[in-house]
Nucleic acid binder design. Structure first.
Length: 873
RNA sequence: GCCCGGGUGGCGAAAUCUGGUAGCCGCAUGGGACUUAAAAUCCCAUGGGGGAAACCCCGUGCCGGUUCGAGUCCGGCCCCGGGCACCA
């Protein structure tokens, strides 16, 4: 063993040891319990960032820990290789996305390997490989056969200058990112997957996911958004029937049928057929509908815009009172939800209230609080009353509580054929068409004679040409006759291949199954999936809490219903790790455009007035003061990233891993700190030095548990306490920071323990061994070296996880806290087996406690066994 | 706008399930030891206020409540972050 710690040499040796033994290549072994430990696959952006390091270190710690616990652990890795950044790189550098992507993968793979993750690299997949996306296409066609995949029109962001569909990310302040042109909404045909057919099951099964964070389950439940309500048909007035089209009534969905008598107007979306019909004869209305087409399709934009509307001059009749209600076109009504039309009840709905206030529409109060007087809602002095209550002013339905009113009104509507109860979901079907090049081609052929024709299975995969270079306007596939010109599989005539590609969420909805059988050439999955799946522990960013996880749950169910897999829930346990943050510094040169400076290049000192001054050397201006903008997610755009590679080169992978695990618990954000990294490096050196000094003093005798001094028993207890805590922290709580803190405390105790006697050395040997094995999943390289240096013949990866010795943990007395009136006043030491009366007596006898009690009468004494006594006076 | 989180010393954080000693561990800072010196290492101190000291008071974003006891539970607010369906 070397006297000083050399991370590069230690890490090289450990990685070589694992590689030579193929330590992390695993196969199906029915004799052992399996554990599938999966981290979300990275997008190959070019370089690893600290978020990756954090994500994969968490996964690796768990994988290595569970391996030591005796599980057959699978930990694979792959690449989410399709997507927009490759096209952006192509636009700025002229490099084909395929080349850019594959070079990035090679670079990032080497970076991952340098971090020492226990990955079975034989199973690596990339979603841009035809052998992978073949099966996206194949399953899409199976879904299409069942009606689970279908074509309908959908709304997209349209850049009128570039004549291109824009991703939401490419819309900046309502304008196209490259052209600056105001974005419009445009309807185009797209393919959809019928995730809403699984809405009920996806919602109900959330209750079974007890290994998921509660907040993720709540977010998913709200996203699915089950509402019980009523369809209500408002018949058109006589003068409206012709103008509105053939259908005799305007349909709405409402969760508040109890407020039906408070409806004073109808509001419809600008894209509603009735709005379009009315706009044909009304120039002002047409202009308003056109105005609503401006702007992006992003929900947050729609929801925060000012509420606007315009009357159509058309009317419906109230289903009970037959009073006419005017139809308005309103920008706050969304076509995608319900019927694209709502009944306007200003007295009992805040959005309707705001709208009615602006449009000067009447307000009719029909609900009063259950307990409390009737109060008329009168805009604007008295706000809308949106809570449940008792109906008033509602003819024969007055005086009913919410549920009774809804039941009675729904029954009456159903009798008249004007409505009935229905469950509505907020969840919409999944639109998967993208008018983009770098994605999986949708396997459809459009034939003038036969229409929409699926590509026959034997012609799959439809291979994406890899030599095209997008230029930012339109989809290069649509300009590539070599790709789109084809023969109709049905009639053999000239036909055009679909040029839309699939949403990249399709790729990531099932990759975790493919890892189990990455080499299966003739099928999407095979029976090995039954052994490995479902994933036992999934780890990834909280930003994926809804879409990716919901799509994967849906996709798994589809495959289950096709008989391909045996599970519906793909991820048994979920850990959502927080983001990695760093300081953001900027300055503004003469051109007025803000530049960012990496925090590593910022020099901070305290000025004469005690205020911190930040400076950096800039290319334009030399040394200038820079502004500290606070903390933000590490990103290219804020220039505050820390390159893991530099960290590994300077301190070693173990330091990088230790710091990311120690700085905060995995679910919280992690704030970068160069000093914290130094601290992690220092701790590893201290551990190294402690083991070195121990080993250098010669061999150790066997531990004789019966012959230990009090101080020796004390260190043993500290060691086994640390082991028990760290085991619980890693295995159950998944709080790695506190597990590390426990081992740091143990190392402090070992440092203070100077006993050079044979039994003292034996106790120290055991304690160092515990520290090294517990840290082995976190800092595997250095622990590999130290464990072998301690004289153990087996490497930590093949060691079982140690068990705490209950005899070492036993104590004769313990400390109890004594409070007077809930305030800490003293500590007493009592025998562990002392009963409540004895503890109480000891507490009341304590001198300091007596002082605080004084001559006041003791009213009550609360004894919490093993913890505290509270004397109430 | 809607849904979901978070807010504790100079800083990252701890206080777990089930309310029971607020601040483990680390960083930073100050002092000391070692050294020709520096670095490294080791030791001590470090929430705020008062006091010579013993010790006392205050303190977990803000306001209020429940309780013998609240960082933890309840109600209301403020601020910060994530998601909102074409970023991944």
């Amino acid at each position: 063993m070397r006297e000083s710690y050399d991370p590069a040499a230690v890490e090289r040796a450990a990685q070589q040891y694992w590689d030579e033994r193929r330590a992390f290549e695993v196969g199906e072994d029915p004799a052992r319990p399996k554990f599938y430990c999966l981290s979300m696959l990275p997008y190959p952006s070019g370089r690893l960032h600290m978020g990756h390091v954090r994500n994969y270190t968490i996964g690796d710690v768990l994988a290595r820990y569970l391996r030591m616990q005796g599980y057959n652990v699978l930990q694979p890795m792959g690449w989410d290789a399709f997507g927009l950044p490759a096209e952006n790189a192509a636009i700025s550098n002229g490099v084909p996305p395929a080349k850019w992507t594959r070079e990035n993968i090679a670079h990032m793979r080497a970076q991952l390997k340098s971090l020492g993750f226990a990955i079975d690299w034989r199973r690596e997949i990339a979603s841009c490989d035809p052998g992978y996306y073949h099966w996206n296409q194949w399953l899409f066609l199976r879904m299409r056969e069942k009606g689970l995949a279908y074509r309908k029109s959908g709304v997209v962001n349209w850049d009128p200058v570039d004549q291109t569909v824009l991703a939401n990310e490419q819309v900046i302040d309502g304008r196209g990112w490259r052209t600056g042109a105001p974005v419009e909404k445009r309807e185009i045909p797209m393919y959809y997957l019928a995730i809403t057919r699984y809405a009920e099951e996806l919602l109900e099964a959330l209750a079974t996911l007890d290994g998921w964070p509660e907040r993720v389950r709540v977010m998913q439940a709200n996203w699915i958004g089950r509402s019980e309500g009523c369809d209500i048909a408002f018949p058109y007035a006589a003068d409206t029937v012709a103008a509105a089209g053939s259908d005799g009534a305007l349909r709405v969905f409402t969760t508040r049928a109890d407020t039906l008598f408070g409806a004073t107007f109808m509001a419809i979306a600008a894209e509603h057929p009735v709005a379009l019909a009315a706009a044909r004869h009304d120039a002002r209305l047409a202009a308003f509908v056109e105005e609503c087409r401006q702007g992006s399709v992003v929900e947050a934009d729609v929801a925060t815009q000012e509420k606007k509307g315009m009357p159509t001059g058309l009317h419906v009749l109230h289903p009970f009172t037959r009073k006419p209600l005017e139809i308005w076109v309103a920008n706050y009504v969304v076509m995608a939800y319900g019927e694209g039309a709502v009944m306007g009840v200003p007295a009992h709905d805040e959005r309707d209230f705001d709208f009615a206030l602006k449009a000067r529409l009447p307000v009719v109060t029909v609900i009063r609080p259950v307990s409390g007087a009737y109060e008329e809602v009168r805009a604007p002095w008295m706000p809308a009353y949106a809570d449940y209550g008792v109906t008033v002013n509602s003819a024969e339905f007055s005086g009913l509580t919410f549920q009774a009113a809804v039941d009675a009104i729904a029954a009456a509507l159903e009798k008249n054929g004007l409505g009935r109860k229905r469950v509505q979901y907020r969840l919409r079907d999944w639109g998967i068409s993208r008018q983009r090049y770098w994605g999986c081609p949708i396997p459809i052929i459009h034939c003038g004679a036969c229409g929409e024709v699926p590509v026959p299975d034997e012609q799959l995969p439809v291979v994406l040409p890899e030599d095209l270079v997008p230029d930012g306007s339109g989809n290069p596939l649509a300009r590539s006759p070599a790709f789109y010109e084809c023969r109709c599989p049905k009639c053999g005539g000239a036909a055009r291949r679909e040029t839309d590609t699939m949403d990249t969420f399709v790729d990531s909805s099932w990759y975790f199954m493919r890892y189990a059988c990455a080499d299966a050439a003739n099928s999407m999955v095979d029976r090995r999936v039954d052994y490995w799946l479902p994933v036992d522990q999934y780890i990834g960013g909280i930003e994926h809490a809804i879409l990716h996880l919901l799509y994967s749950r849906f996709w798994s169910r589809v495959m289950r219903d096709f008989g391909m897999v045996k599970f519906g829930e793909p991820f048994t346990r979920l850990l959502t790790q927080g983001m990695v943050l760093n300081d953001i510094y900027s300055y503004v040169p003469d051109d007025g455009r803000k530049r960012y400076v990496n925090p590593a290049d910022v020099d901070t000192r305290r000025g004469a007035d005690g205020v911190e001054v930040h400076e950096a050397v800039t290319p334009e201006l030399g040394t200038v003061p820079v502004t500290h903008e606070g903390l933000g997610k590490m990103s290219k755009s804020s220039g505050n990233g820390v390159d893991p590679q530099h960290l590994v080169e300077r301190f070693g992978a173990d330091t990088a891993r230790l710091f990311t695990m120690f700085a905060s618990p995995p679910e919280q954000t992690l704030e970068w700190s160069d000093e914290g990294v130094q601290g992690a490096a220092r701790f590893i050196r201290r551990l190294w030095n402690a083991v070195y000094e121990h080993v250098a003093a010669g061999p150790t005798l066997a531990l004789d548990r019966a012959a230990l001094s009090a101080a020796q028993r004390e260190l043993r207890r500290a060691a086994h306490q640390a082991l028990a805590k760290a085991t619980d922290d890693i295995g159950r709580r998944r709080n790695f920071n506190t597990a590390i803190a426990a081992i740091m405390e143990l190392l402090n105790s070992i440092g203070r323990f100077g006993d050079p006697s044979p039994q003292g050395r034996a106790v120290r040997h055991e304690a160092l061994g515990i520290a090294v094995l517990v840290l082995a999943p976190i800092t595997p390289h250095v622990c590999h070296a130290l464990w072998l240096a301690l004289g153990h013949p087996t490497a930590p990866v093949d060691e079982p996880w140690p068990t705490p010795d209950s005899a070492a943990l036993a104590q004769e007395t313990h400390e109890i806290v004594v409070q007077v009136n809930g305030r800490l006043r003293g500590h007493i030491s009592v025998p562990v087996q002392a009963d409540e009366a004895a503890v109480r007596a000891a507490a009341l006898a304590d001198e300091r406690v007596r002082r605080f009690i004084g001559d006041k009468p003791v009213r009550r004494v609360i004894v919490v066994p093993g913890k505290l006594v509270n004397v109430v006076v």
